[in-house]
Computed example of a mutant assay.
Amino acid sequence: MDNVEKTEQLPEFLQTEFDPRDPNPWLALYLDQSTPLPDHVKQAWLTDSASPSRQFLLPFVRPIARTLIVLIQIFKVVVPRKWAASKFLHWILAAGLKYCVRPEANWLVLRHFHMGAQILEFIAANSPVKVETSPLKPITLDDLKDELFLKHDLNLFNFVIRLSKALRDADKKLQPVAQPDFSMIKEPEVTLEAMPRGRLNGIDLQTAIEMFTPTYQLFLTDNDFWRASNSLQLDETIGLYVATILNSPQHLVLLNNKHPLVPMSTLRAGYRLVLHGLSTEMLHALLMELKKQQGFTSAQQ
Rank of each mutant, 00 (worst) to 15 (best):
145 K>L: 12
82 K>Y: 09
53 S>T: 01
42 K>C: 10
186 K>Y: 14
143 D>N: 13
142 D>A: 14
132 E>V: 06
83 W>G: 03
33 Q>N: 10
246 L>K: 01
135 P>A: 08
119 I>V: 15
236 E>I: 08
42 K>Q: 08
233 Q>I: 03
37 L>T: 00
35 T>M: 15
60 F>E: 11
31 L>W: 11
144 L>K: 05
103 P>I: 01
241 Y>A: 13
290 L>W: 10
89 L>C: 03
46 L>R: 06
164 S>F: 03
125 A>P: 03
2 D>A: 13
101 V>P: 03
149 F>W: 11
39 D>W: 11
186 K>N: 12
98 K>G: 04
230 N>R: 12
243 A>G: 06
1 M>R: 14
169 D>R: 14
21 R>H: 10
234 L>F: 06
190 V>G: 13
232 L>N: 09
171 D>F: 15
76 K>Y: 03
261 L>G: 09
150 L>R: 09
30 Y>G: 08
295 G>K: 05
46 L>S: 06
145 K>W: 12
111 R>F: 00
230 N>I: 07
11 P>F: 09
120 L>F: 15
104 E>G: 01
163 L>E: 00
8 E>V: 10
107 W>D: 01
150 L>P: 07
28 A>M: 12
203 I>H: 02
19 D>F: 00
167 L>A: 02
198 G>D: 03
169 D>T: 09
217 Q>P: 02
183 S>D: 04
212 F>P: 04
18 F>M: 03
